[in-house]
């Protein structure tokens, strides 16, 4: 059972660095748990889509009936945070992907896969993220995507070398880089706060949670 103080946040556990996100979310005072099946999405106040291989995640989501339930949750306003492959999954459009690659969507943006290059070009650099206090975060970019362009509703939170690498639109957050690999949990704390706000709104009188209870 979620409380507004400790929101329950799922980490999509089809493939990728699930463990690191579970640890980072717990450190940011969320109750974190892996989710692989549609039924496990019930009761979540937020969902993280981890780093990994986006083609693999997308195929497994289709094969195990997760794609539509996930899309419904995103449309209904569930807070979602995607890192790297997760950023690709919440993009409305892809470049450099396979033509048949399915995404959940959620942010009106075009994301280019592996835009920063192959593994030899993977890098670390400091990145200033709008809304994160206390100085730049350590950006770990691994075969990372960048955001080619965003729609009017999306807010660019960070750029690196002229490329957009962090975006928020409503309750959906995405970064090209991997805060879960650094031990610096400020980006996760920002997301946990988004989930907390969402949980409070749902529990508030007149909120959706309240309506269901009344009925």
């Amino acid at each position: 059972m979620s409380t507004a103080d400790s929101p329950v946040i799922g980490v999509l556990a089809l493939q990728g660095d699930v463990r690191e996100h579970l640890i980072a979310l717990a450190a940011a005072d969320a109750v974190a748990r892996p989710v692989r099946r549609p039924g496990e999405l019930d009761g979540l106040d937020g969902l993280v889509i981890p780093g990994g291989e986006s083609t693999t995640m997308s195929k497994l989501a289709v094969a195990f009936g997760m794609l539509e339930p996930l899309r419904e949750r995103v449309r209904a306003g569930l807070p979602v945070y995607g890192t790297c492959a997760g950023m690709i999954m919440v993009a409305d459009k892809l470049l450099g992907g396979r033509e048949d690659q399915e995404t959940l969507g959620g942010i009106d943006m075009i994301v280019r896969r592996n835009a920063f290059g192959r593994q030899n070009e993977s890098f670390e650099a400091s990145v200033e993220v709008s809304g994160i206090e206390g100085g730049p975060v350590e950006g770990v970019f691994i075969r990372a995507p960048w955001v080619e362009s965003v729609g009017a509703a999306a807010e660019v939170l960070a750029t690196y070398d002229g490329h957009t690498v962090a975006v928020r639109q409503g309750n959906v957050l995405a970064t090209s880089f991997h805060p879960e690999l650094t031990g610096d949990h400020r980006v996760h704390a920002l997301f946990v706060e988004m989930a907390r706000d969402h949980a409070r709104a749902e529990l508030a009188p007149g909120g959706r949670g309240a309506c269901v209870t009344a009925a």
Partner: peptide, 23 residues
């Protein structure tokens, strides 16, 4: 925009790549 020089081939970037392959 950030202006720091990117560091490639760090242990974190190398080990982090394998973390992305898990599962």
């Amino acid at each position: 925009p950030s202006t720091t020089t990117p560091e490639t081939g760090t242990a974190r970037v190398k080990r982090g790549m394998a973390e992305q392959l898990k599962g």
